[in-house]
């Protein structure tokens, strides 16, 4: 999952980015409204976390322009404004959620996860392909009865592929969703990661391959052999 955080207070932005990254999200961040709008329009973020009082372009204006540009990325307003009027105005502008500062970081992460589930129209935190199950709430993966331990990045890759089960995902899409700006990967990094993931989720020699390659197009997950 790839997120955008637009928050002008660096003292707050830094720990939030750290927490989100530690929770397996790829995070881009900025402290400027205009730059945030540009990034949101350029990339397909799974969730955008937006402050309201921002330099150069107000958070509400950023959201308005995003919705005018037909961006359907879920937006969570993260702001100090706590009045009912402000919350209602924010939600009416097209925000999907509203969180008042100060907040518990766990709550922010839970809300971000809920918003990303809503984006992919999944109610349950559990995703499954064949006998492979991924639990987004406990960040755990099981194949049959075997627990599988994955690094944060491989977990994100598997989650992304499972969310788009049966759909071919290009390398570029994977790059955009799994890696943030700072860790812009070379194209073979995606291939290496997919290869590593295949090996990790193959718990025995009899385990059928769940990640398939469409040559020149990308990868997709399916329980059936292609």
């Amino acid at each position: 999952m790839k997120l955008l955080l637009v928050e002008d207070s660096e003292a707050l932005r830094r720990p939030v980015v750290k927490a989100l990254k530690a929770s397996g999200f790829a995070v881009d961040s900025t402290g400027d409204g205009k730059e945030g709008l540009w990034m949101a329009l350029e990339h397909d973020y799974d969730v955008i976390i937006l402050d309201i009082m921002l330099p150069s372009l107000d958070g509400r204006e950023v959201l308005k322009r995003l919705r005018e540009a037909n961006s359907d990325s879920p937006v969570l307003f993260l702001t100090a404004k706590d009045s009912i009027e402000d919350r209602v105005a924010g939600l009416r502008l097209g925000a999907d959620d509203y969180l008042v500062k100060s907040f518990a970081i766990e709550e922010l992460i839970a809300r971000v996860e809920a918003l990303s589930r809503r984006k992919y129209q999944i109610r349950s935190p559990k995703l499954s392909v064949g006998d492979l199950t991924l639990d987004r709430s406990t960040k755990s993966v099981k194949r049959g009865e075997h627990n599988i331990s994955l690094s944060t990045q491989l977990f994100s890759l598997l989650e992304y592929l499972m969310l788009n089960k049966g759909t071919v995902i290009s390398r570029t899409q994977i790059e955009q969703h799994i890696y943030d700006e700072q860790v812009a990967p070379m194209s073979n990094v995606v291939d290496t990661a997919v290869c590593a993931l295949r090996k990790t989720i193959s718990v025995s020699k009899d385990s059928p391959s769940l990640i398939h390659t469409r040559r020149g197009m990308g990868y997709f997950m399916s329980a059936e052999n292609s």
Partner: peptide, 29 residues
């Protein structure tokens, strides 16, 4: 005034709280 005051007080408070929570949950970070 109350909006501005909320921002002036809540933003640094949120920064302190979040930094502390992250440090407790992910000490390696």
């Amino acid at each position: 005034f109350s909006n501005d005051l909320a921002h002036e007080l809540r933003t640094p408070l949120a920064a302190i709280r979040t930094t502390s929570e992250v440090a407790l949950k992910w000490p390696e970070q």
